[in-house]
């Protein structure tokens, strides 16, 4: 028994050696910050470090709930994230269905190539482009609108419009990827189904309604359920690059609030408390959505 255990360990040893460096790095830089969340319960003094700072119980959380804008920020976050979720399904599914009807494969390929490109550009690049074209004074978009008699629109500077600008520009970056995911789901539908439908006299619309849509419904359900885990992710990288104090009332989200509170105002404890609340809610949402995805679509991560 002992000898067998020893032999087994010898056989598994290389596997442990392979994992070793990654486990150390993850312990420090992924698990370390999880433990570092104790800052949320401290009056954190950077000079004294994680374990030297005085504990203050739930003071930071109490402060957080009294912040004048906290509920507004929570509302903005969910509003923007929810609109992105819905449009992130509707637009790619629609475009995939339209592309699927295109017969010329060259045209199909050109459209795919173009709409997929912004997905790979960073929000810094895309924001640079957006700030240039959306400028109310000399941006091309307002020039074009002006030529048909529309007054300049402050896409990034008007609090009423800002959330919608965020959603539309987010679609610009991401719908190409979604479209290609759904297109690959469409191509996996059994072509004989269409053949027999044609024999039965079904027209194109009936084919779409009774074969195509049910054929991709699993993928749609799966991806919508999984996106629920992002209900508090309104897109930090995007909003950070596009917002300004004028649009805080509708554009400030949890992540930008955490950044300003912590990295600019040095209220480390409060910022960590807000971030921790977000992490916990996100964890619950992800766990629930994975559970739901397993039930509805047989999805498993492992």
């Amino acid at each position: 028994m002992q000898a067998r255990g020893k032999e087994r360990f010898k056989r598994e040893l290389p596997l442990y050696i392979m994992l070793f460096p990654a486990v150390i790095i993850m312990l420090i830089y992924s698990y370390g910050p999880m433990i570092g969340n104790v800052i949320a319960f401290q009056r954190f003094l950077p000079g004294k470090g994680l374990f030297g700072s005085p504990f203050v119980g739930l003071d930071n959380f109490a402060y957080m709930l009294k912040m004048p804008n906290i509920w507004n920020v929570l509302y903005n976050t969910i509003f923007i994230a929810f609109m992105k979720m819905v449009m992130g399904i509707v637009v790619p599914v629609t475009v995939a269905l339209l592309l699927n009807e295109v017969i010329s494969s060259a045209f199909k390929r050109i459209v795919q190539t173009i709409i997929y490109l912004p997905y790979f550009l960073s929000w810094v690049i895309l924001s640079g482009i957006l700030i240039t074209i959306l400028s109310p004074s000399d941006g091309i978009v307002n020039q074009i609108l002006g030529s048909i008699g529309i007054k300049p629109i402050f896409f990034l500077g008007d609090a009423r419009i800002f959330p919608y600008t965020i959603v539309v520009t987010d679609i610009w970056k991401n719908f190409g990827f979604g479209t290609i995911v759904y297109l690959s789901a469409l191509t996996s539908i059994d072509p004989t189904l269409y053949e027999s439908a044609v024999i039965d006299g079904a027209n194109r619309w009936q084919q779409t309604k009774h074969i195509t849509l049910p054929g991709i419904s699993t993928t749609v359900v799966l991806l919508s359920v999984l996106s629920m885990g992002n209900i508090l992710n309104a897109g930090f990288e995007q909003i950070f690059n596009l917002y300004s104090p004028i649009v805080y009332s509708t554009g400030d989200i949890i992540d930008t609030l955490v950044y300003r509170t912590g990295m600019q105002n040095y209220q480390f404890g409060v910022a960590t408390a807000v971030g921790l609340m977000k992490s916990i809610v996100a964890f619950i949402m992800i766990a629930l959505s994975n559970q739901l995805a397993r039930k509805t679509a047989g999805y498993r991560v492992l």
């Binding site: 433990i35 570092g36 990295m263 921790l276 977000k278």
Partner: peptide
């Protein structure tokens, strides 16, 4: 882990 602990 969140932004602030990660930075620390």
């Amino acid at each position: 882990g969140g932004l602030i602990p990660w930075y620390m």
